[in-house]
Design a protein around this nucleic acid. Structure first.
Lengths: 167, 167
DNA sequence: GCGGAACGGTTGGACGTCATACCTTCGCCC
DNA sequence: GGGCGAAGGTATGACGTCCAACCGTTCCGC
């Protein structure tokens, strides 16, 4: 991992260059998009670092938590895909790995023979809670922002996601 | 791509479940982190869709733009890595592809024989500008937020990145 | 000066994501 | 009720990211 610290803000610099180039109308949006990308990268590293010794990734953690909160402890793969907004092939791949790890089982749908459900195992449920406890403590409880900015961020991104067709 | 639109905000739902679980102190941060992840996913798709027929990805586009703005049109691979905050292996891989596409050339460093520079070709510079024009028009000029929220977002994320050691 | 530490880059492997193509099963409509 | 399109999953392959290990080069301290 590159824990390098730059001597300046690369995004502010890019924004100035955008303006110099005559792209002033697009400069704020460029900065915002780039900021999101970079922040995601930083957070993802921080999270995966916490999950590494549990042999989980954020993608698989999210999938597990989805099952934990799904009462029956089982969901059709298609449901997982639309809930997490990822490609069907990604779901297949994640469930494959979780199944190999013994955290999830594939079971047939009651009536629809096309559909398969991913069902949480006891080990899967237990590991999901361990991981949650750790992420809550080391990342979510202090994401790196004052509480009022966390809320502002949530509101702004909620609007963006809504307009982007997320929900 | 899953252009699926959910009938509710999945992050708001997750937040409520976090609170029900007794994790209220971590709930806002969890929502913020998850929002960043999901927003990045949406934006990345939107961008890659625009770049696809130029045979570029956002990662390679960023690398090209770095070179465009580097006066000499050339930078050491290590410099690219620390500027974009990506692993050296990722730089090698991106430059490999750009070189195959004829957009970049690897040239030796004047004095340090360990170092290689990635140098923009004429085709690389031209394609970078075409891609910029398109992204400015289709994404950056309207990222999906009102202008004041774009600025607020930029400020909040600037702080987060700073405290995360980005610069 | 010289020997070991640090640096720059590459390689190979793991994982996540997507696109495309394909198979099975379901559902609907004539 | 038969056929055809849609839906659920999977396989394959491309790309991006990281880690761990490695090689050659440079730097530095004794």
């Amino acid at each position: 991992m590159p824990p390098n610290t730059l001597p300046f803000d690369p995004i502010a610099q890019a924004r100035r260059r955008w303006e110099d180039e005559g792209w002033g109308d697009a400069a704020p949006g460029m900065a915002a998009v780039t900021s999101i990308m970079r922040t995601q990268q930083l957070l993802m590293r921080r999270i995966d670092e916490q999950l590494r010794d549990l042999e989980l990734t954020f993608a698989r953690y999210e999938l597990l938590m989805l099952l934990v909160f799904s009462q029956r402890g089982a969901l059709p793969l298609s449901g997982i895909g639309s809930r997490l907004q990822v490609h069907p092939a990604s779901v297949t791949s994640a469930v494959d790995r979780l199944e190999r790890q013994g955290l999830v089982r594939r079971i047939p749908h009651e009536t629809d023979r096309r559909t398969k459900l991913a069902e949480l195992t006891a080990a899967g449920r237990s590991l999901a809670l361990t991981a949650s406890e750790r992420l809550n403590r080391t990342v979510f409880a202090d994401p790196g922002l004052p509480p009022d900015e966390v809320e502002t961020l949530n509101e702004i991104l909620r609007g963006l996601r809504h307009r982007a067709g997320d929900f």
